[in-house]
Design a binder for these strands. Structure first.
Lengths: 356, 356
DNA sequence: CTGAAAGCGCTTACAG
DNA sequence: CTGAAAGCGCTTACAG
């Protein structure tokens, strides 16, 4: 921690006051071009490094944004994080990252730390079981908050996905393929997003007058292991479902794997649909049909929502943003078998392209 | 950005000086327990939030660590990041995250930003093509640096993997299975880690007096797409290799997928070995044999190396750490076919367990 | 055991 | 167009 030259040193070197140096560093038009150049030259010569912390302390405006993520083992959230970091960096903000691993105590600790670090704003995907009061509490700290993926009420900026629509779409796709007994894997009780997804599934079934057995709605962990359990459960039912809508791609990957282990193939023995279109979904065997909402786009919108909030003044404060992306279905072999895949995939890929 | 109470306010509330408040917050034993309790009570009452930035400015000691990652689309680096963030958080440090996506300009920008943020130390996995001078430059800034996964000389702290040993191990495993024509997929030219991995492969082949055709060493992108290209190349060779060692799991996943698309199965048509043991490797079809070095352990060691560096004084400065983990092979179906998998996997899993 | 004072490196009215 | 001065919220010798 050796401390380099300060604006004071530059001022001495350039023969001006430190006020002038500060103004030059901020590219203020109030300083004559000639003087400005002299100052910049001195800064270069001394190897000056701007001290953002000091500026934040004095100017009362921070340029770091906190990003709190619940589950980085899910590649969808990684894509989201990367997009957010990229957009914020472009706007001159630095990203403070923290991972909660769905642990509420970790989340509390992390939020305190971010507050102490004086973040200008927060983007957060709350851990499961987060109290409904948390968003209001964070806002009471004076820190703008954007929630991603997991909504917690209409009065806080939220960027997510229309899960109900998406899961109805996925279910209808399976119904179109002739399936009538369709399971839902990954129904975690008391979990808002799971409720939305199940609701989408149920509404599509109801719309086509298909009945749903209670045991088709399978409550398993939202991991590959959960997917494997779901397959074992399905193959013990009789008559058994011939298709399954999975909570997300992580679950679906477990489903594909367990089928493979049983010597069966997704798309033939059991039609499978996932959600998130993670990068790996294209490379599973067989490739996975899945809902696409665009982590990159969602991350961009979340960042822009926060940036807009940061630049607004007290008076022109806008109501909370509630953005829910409409997902599209990317059809691959896991839901239609090897034969139909090419044409269907091509058709739907075009649809996806049109969406963006 | 509303500013809350400061130590000044607490001092007034508690009827002491701000020096005393500061000392209490630092849990100094110099303050009487009774006074300390009075101060803490006042802080609680006023909803005080510590301003770490101000402390850093005055105390000249920062508690943020910069983490620069080259490729977060590779889950191995995500595991590494998560481990590092966890260990640093436990020691009271905050992680500033940046992603370079292998882009040198982004890396330069990001490093400047971290320097302006006054990070106490840096953990970095340098982007491809990073100049050999960079570590020395960073150290000249007075910022301790730990390199992960990509070594750049003996005079900078480095935590990585013994790639040559690992790839020899992987290659020998295939030779043991009776393969004599073995390819290497993912040989990026001029890339130090790729050189090490190729060298391990070559030395195992040489040790067993097996000749290597030039075209068996396949230069493709280090992605699933690269793996697919490698498979197409292999199946055009005659006589063609019957096994392939892949640069990493990303490449191997592409190999598995292309084989599946050709109606062939890894482990039968072509034995496949990857490297990293990413979480997904367990869930591919078929499951992937791969080298395991333990991202979690590597991340922990990298963090601890940096923390040790941060707490050392000028005099007791230790020579650069050069830690290279010895990888183990996790044998799954992709290299041995369905029959042999259970027993072999069990045996080797035990080996892996013993390693930790 | 506690307090008064100086100062970390900046920014921002204000004066000229 | 530029400078002198005050101050952001802390920490740290130093004095008592």
């Amino acid at each position: 921690m050796k401390s380099g030259p300060t604006i004071q040193d530059i001022a001495a070197e350039a023969g001006v006051s430190k006020s002038t140096v500060s103004l030059v560093l901020q590219e203020s038009p109030r300083i004559k071009a000639e003087t400005a150049e002299k100052v910049r030259e001195a800064a270069r010569k001394l190897g000056y490094v701007y001290n953002r912390g000091a500026a934040t302390l004095r100017g009362r405006r921070s340029t770091t944004i906190g990003m709190v993520i619940n589950d980085l083992t899910n590649p969808f959230f990684v894509e989201l994080l990367v997009a957010i970091e990229r957009v914020l960096a472009q706007s001159g903000y630095t990203t403070l990252m923290a991972h909660t691993a769905e642990n509420l105590e970790t989340q509390t600790r992390v939020l305190r730390s971010m507050r102490e670090q004086n973040v200008a704003g927060l983007i957060m995907s709350p851990a499961l079981g987060t109290s409904d009061d948390l968003p209001a509490e964070i806002q009471s700290w004076g820190i703008p908050l954007v929630l991603v993926m997991r909504p917690m009420g209409a009065d806080v900026d939220t960027v997510g996905v229309d899960n109900e629509y998406g899961f109805a779409l996925a279910t209808e796709h399976l119904i179109e393929q002739g399936h009538t007994r369709i399971a839902f894997a990954g129904n975690r009780k008391g979990y808002a997003v799971a409720n939305q997804r199940r609701q989408g599934y149920l509404s599509a079934m109801a719309k086509h007058s298909l009945s749903v057995n209670d045991d088709w709605i399978i409550d398993v962990e939202l991991t590959p292991e959960g997917g494997r359990k779901a397959v074992r459960a399905i193959f013990e039912m009789k008559p058994r479902p011939t298709a399954v809508v999975c909570y997300n791609d992580q679950v679906a990957i477990g489903v594909l794997h367990e089928l493979d282990r049983m010597g069966k193939r997704a798309g033939k023995a059991l039609a499978v649909v996932g959600c998130d279109n993670v990068v790996a979904a294209e490379h599973t065997n067989p490739p996975l049909t899945t809902l696409f909402a665009g982590a990159d786009k969602l991350g961009t919108i979340a960042s822009e929502t926060l940036l807009a909030r940061l630049s607004e003044t007290q008076e022109d404060e806008k109501p909370a943003v509630q953005y829910f992306a409409v997902p599209a279905l990317v059809v691959r072999e896991s839901s239609v078998g090897a034969d139909a895949t090419t044409s269907a995939a091509t058709k739907k890929q075009a649809l996806v392209a049109g969406e963006r």
